[in-house]
C-alpha cells in the first residue's frame, strides 16, 4: 500500500506512529494483533526488530562496513549464525553479488540503496516501511530500484508500506491512501488521478501494471 500526501501533511508522523516509534497523544495503535501502546519501551524495540524493517531516503549505510557486512548487520545483532550466507543471498537478489566486498563510498547511489533494500529484507520482516526510497536518486535509477523493491517484496510476501509524494509510484501499489488534513482517505484524489491518466497516456504502461504485484495489507 502507498500513503501519499503533500509536504507537511503528516506522512512521517503517521509512519512513526505505525512503526511504534512515537506514542499517540490519544487513541491506540494496533499492529498485527499487538497493541503497541501496551508494550514497554524495550519490548516495543524487540517487537519492532523482529517484525518491521525500514528503507530510508538517505540510505543510511555504515561507511566503515562492506556491502555484505551492512546487510548482515541486523542478523548479527540478533546473533544469527547464518548471517553471512543470508546476506550474500539477498545481495544476489539485488544483483550486487560481485560488489559485496565494496564499501559504501565505492558504490553509486543506486547501488547503495539496493544494499539498503537487501538489508531491509534480510530479516524477513512482516512489514517493511519505505520512506521516499527513491527521493535521493535520479528517475532512471529510481525506477530500477522500485522494480527490484517490488520484486523482492512479492517473493518474500512482505507487507510494504510506501510513503511517497509521487502519485505515479503510489498507483503501482495495491491500495493507495492519501493523507489530507489529518484524515487518511483511500484512493488518489481526482486531480492526482487526472495527472496520473495523463502520465499513463504518455508513459509506458507496464510500469504501472507492475504495481498489482504488491500484496495486500495483511491485517
Amino acid at each position: 500500500m502507498a500513503i501519499i500526501g503533500q509536504s507537511g501533511a503528516g506522512k512521517s508522523t503517521l509512519l512513526s506512529l505505525l512503526a511504534g516509534l512515537d506514542e499517540p497523544t490519544s487513541g491506540t495503535v494496533k499492529l498485527m494483533e499487538t497493541d503497541l501502546n501496551q508494550l514497554s519501551d524495550a519490548a516495543r524495540s524487540t517487537w519492532r526488530s523482529t517484525n518491521l524493517s525500514f528503507i530510508f531516503q538517505a540510505f543510511h549505510l555504515l561507511p566503515e562496513l562492506t556491502a555484505l557486512e551492512n546487510v548482515q548487520l541486523p542478523l548479527d545483532i540478533r546473533g544469527d549464525k547464518q548471517a553471512s550466507q543470508q546476506a550474500a543471498r539477498l545481495l544476489g537478489k539485488v544483483g550486487l553479488s560481485d560488489r559485496q566486498d565494496h564499501y559504501p563510498a565505492q558504490l553509486s547511489g543506486g547501488e547503495q540503496q539496493r544494499v539498503a533494500i537487501a538489508r531491509a529484507f534480510v530479516t524477513a520482516p512482516s512489514i517493511l516501511f519505505a520512506d521516499e526510497p527513491t527521493g535521493n536518486l535520479d528517475a532512471q535509477t529510481g525506477e530500477n530500484i522500485i522494480t527490484q523493491l517490488f520484486d523482492i517484496n512479492e517473493q518474500q510476501a512482505t507487507t510494504l508500506i510506501l510513503i511517497t509524494h509521487d502519485a505515479a509510484l503510489a498507483s503501482r501499489c495495491n491500495r493507495q491512501f492519501r493523507l489530507e488534513q489529518g484524515m487518511l482517505i483511500e484512493g488518489l484524489s481526482e486531480a492526482r488521478a487526472e495527472g496520473l491518466s495523463e502520465a499513463r497516456a504518455e508513459g509506458p504502461n507496464d510500469t504501472i501494471n507492475k504495481g498489482s504485484n504488491v500484496e495486500a495489507v495483511k491485517d
Partner: peptide
C-alpha cells in the same frame, strides 16, 4: 546520533 538511530532501527538494544 544518526548512526545510533540506524542501529536501533536494525534492532540493536540499549545494552548492546
Amino acid at each position: 546520533r544518526s548512526r545510533t538511530a540506524l542501529l536501533m532501527s536494525l534492532g540493536l538494544s540499549r545494552t548492546q
